[in-house]
Nucleic acid binder design. Structure first.
Length: 421
DNA sequence: TCTGGGGTCCTAGGACCC
DNA sequence: TCTGGGGTCCTAGGACCC
């Protein structure tokens, strides 16, 4: 939502919502939209009338824009802190250990400067929580977000401060406490973060997921249990990669679904090569609507252990197609499909057998490198598998969905550059 | 009836996160 | 009619190894 406001300042002060893929659900909301009672994850069609009544600005999601804006923010953060862990598209942990010695002012002032600079350089408003542990930093960040008088920064520097903060936050808003745990905590009479911080290790182990729960409680008490995992050169490297989509409309025909799964596989293969990995485990899944009259199971999946870890699009698409053959059944209305790669390892690590090594695989790697280079230079999809090319006259693949209100790729597409004046 | 001790790898499932 | 798309970590159990 903030990204859209940067390029459309007239949205300032107005209720704005961003929709998920296929214009399905609300996934980002301005403060004004939240005030109208619009909740995260609501299906769009259920709140359509409310949105119209209150003249809420509605946008399809524009991941190219959000990803690029995120990259800019993260790059700046990596310049000001000794180590940065990119936690998600819109969150990062900064390691401030030892930084105070080099500062003229306090960490509080430092945080305010960083925040002001992020805003000045990218237009993105942020909040900062500073504390001895990740869990407390998240909690502090939440307080900063909820209390405008704090000016976007909350620094838990003293024991009194920490205790006060724990009293302010409901237990369901603590990082790591989800739906299931909240019920158990309420049943035990624990309703605030302070209550949680005071519970015994035995209780935490028993009811909050063993070691995870024990760590959570310790972190609330101010003892770090989670180190920072620095994101090297400002990028996120993942242990598993996935691409899945809900189709624009239910699909029944095998060729349509193979087309979708091939496209998804191509995308994940690109991600795989970008982070320099190869996968040796692939899961393909196929889902049906869980909202209609049909009974479960709603989803089926096939797991393939690949003979050799690979990141080659053509090989992976072949495997995906084989997996899909085992899953697809005629007469079913499929609404979603996806591909997941696990068991990632640095590309080229696996010892190839005498027969697999050599000129053939060398050539294939080169081909993928060329493909990535061309797509990087001339734009996504410039070079792709022939099977992904649409028949002439067809603008959209059958699986592609709605994106009725997509804004331009202001920062990543030359044709979409904002014109001023 | 008794029948070790130490590992690894894989899978499924459950909880959580943004 | 229309209901998102990514991830993480942990645990338990089974197969298999020496």
């Amino acid at each position: 939502m903030s990204c859209e406001r940067v390029f459309q300042p007239r949205l300032e002060g107005r209720p704005v919502v961003i929709l998920s893929n296929n214009d399905g659900c609300l996934i980002s909301r301005s403060a004004e939209a939240k005030a109208l009672g619009l909740q995260m994850g609501y299906p769009y069609f259920q709140v359509k009338l409310l949105l119209e009544q209150h003249k809420v600005a509605v946008f399809s999601s524009n991941y190219a824009l959000y990803g690029d804006m995120s990259r800019r923010v993260m790059w700046y953060l990596s310049q000001v802190a000794p180590a940065v862990e990119i936690y998600s598209v819109d969150e990062a942990f900064l390691d401030l250990h030892g930084l105070e010695r080099f500062l003229v002012d306090s960490l509080d002032t430092f945080a305010r400067t960083v925040r002001a600079n992020v805003l000045a350089r990218t237009g993105i408003p942020t909040c900062v929580g500073v504390a001895p542990t990740k869990t407390l930093a998240k909690l502090a960040n939440r307080l900063a977000k909820k209390s405008p008088e704090m000016g976007g920064v909350c620094y838990l520097d003293t024991e009194e401060c920490r205790r006060w903060a724990l009293e302010q936050v409901a237990v369901e808003d603590v990082w790591g406490i989800g739906r299931q745990y909240v019920q158990k905590l309420y049943a035990a009479g624990i309703t605030t973060a302070a209550g949680l911080a005071a519970c015994s290790e035995a209780f935490a182990r028993k009811h909050l997921g063993r070691v995870v729960g024990a760590r959570l409680v310790r972190e609330l008490q101010g003892f770090p249990c989670q180190g920072l995992a620095p994101s090297e050169d400002g990028t996120l490297s993942r242990r598993s990669l996935c691409c899945s989509r809900t189709f624009g409309k239910p699909l029944t025909e095998f060729p349509d679904i193979v087309g979708a799964v091939s496209a998804f596989t191509s995308r994940v293969a690109e991600k795989l090569r970008r982070q320099g990995d190869a996968a040796h485990l692939m899961t393909v899944f196929l889902s049906k609507s869980r909202y209609g009259l049909e009974p479960p199971p709603y989803s089926c999946s096939a797991v393939l252990t690949l003979p050799v870890a690979t990141n080659n699009t053509m090989e992976l698409v072949r495997f995906a197609r084989a997996a899909l053959k085992r899953l697809w059944q005629p007469g079913h209305r499929y609404t979603k499909a996806g591909v997941i790669f696990d068991g990632l390892e640095p590309a080229g690590q696996t010892q190839l057998t005498l027969f697999e090594a050599g000129p053939v695989s060398e050539k294939r790697n080169k081909l993928m490198a060329e493909l990535d280079a061309l797509n990087h230079r001339f734009g996504k999809g410039t070079v792709k598998l022939a099977s992904l090319i649409l028949p002439s006259g067809q603008l959209q693949a059958p699986w592609e969905g709605q994106a009725q209100w997509r804004t331009p790729q202001y920062t990543t597409r030359l044709e979409d550059l904002l014109m001023v004046g």
